[in-house]
Design a protein around this nucleic acid. Sequence first.
DNA 1: TGCGATTTAATCGCGCGCGATTTATATGGG
DNA 2: CCCATATAAATCGCGCGCGATTAAATCGCA
Lengths: 162, 162
Amino acid sequence: MGPMSETSPPAPQGDPLDQFLCFSVYATGLAFNRVYKPLLDRFGITYPQYLALVALRGADAQTVSALGAKLHLESNTLTPLIKRLESAGLVTRTRDKQDERVVRVALSDAGRSLIDDALGCIPAALLEATGMRAEELTALNHKLASLGAALRSAAAPAGRAG
Amino acid sequence: MGPMSETSPPAPQGDPLDQFLCFSVYATGLAFNRVYKPLLDRFGITYPQYLALVALRGADAQTVSALGAKLHLESNTLTPLIKRLESAGLVTRTRDKQDERVVRVALSDAGRSLIDDALGCIPAALLEATGMRAEELTALNHKLASLGAALRSAAAPAGRAG
DNA sequence: TGCGATTTAATCGCGCGCGATTTATATGGG
DNA sequence: CCCATATAAATCGCGCGCGATTAAATCGCA
């Protein structure tokens, strides 16, 4: 993203980067990670692993591709991450009998209880860290989601007007 | 972030992750990167390097710490990044004569003309990729910036109520 | 049936972020 | 003056993201 409103001749502002929406997204992502880190360290998982466990909680025995569709990641990122979760005993990986190409990933009992525990306290801690009202965050969430969707379709290689 | 509005009993929605603001920030960050990648490849730089060059354009001969304050990064991340920019001939690194501990980073002529060229076309391409109006993006930018600031102060180790 | 095209994961290399540590320089108190 | 402390940057290891490639299984079609 670039300077958004070119209609600002007078003040040079704090920093040029602050005019970039992409930078706000980038920096807020870093900030989220820093808030999550100490909370997730107590569970021995990373932030991407936390997201994967949340996604797995939604539906069990998902393929790597299906999980990737939810997380917007591909096997080159997911396979090593899932193997680390497997080493930690939090998920199981099984080749599909019908189609040996696909690997199905499921929460183990330990994984399920870990993510349930985590969801019991972490979201509340995060909500407090934002210092904002839930409805305000929901609105922001929706706007960001549609921005993300627009960017994803713009980044898609095939068939776009423009 | 967690489920934001617990006031939604009926629909299980698309995916649980979509209820997490942190995930929208994370996924939108990934999406921004994917839009930037082909644009920045033509200049031979990465997205963090692009941000660093933008920050350097704002004020020359900055210390690593000052640059880090703008980017919300520290020397463990910045030093290697800056060295890559130096190898590419885009910035210069010089030890401060008054205080030999500090390193001052400045754009080279090549770096300045590269970032000027990049800013000449990339922000417009990004604006188009969002498919949103500039004023809407500006509003989103401000909300995200204050969210980021809140998270950063919550993540700061010392002296907080709560 | 056979065999190329497609699909699904996995592998590899590189550039971040970052916690932890190290090195080098500067500063201040006895 | 000397040494403890502080500060700035650099180094190291690990876990992502991801482009590119590979391996293996399935599908399709003659």
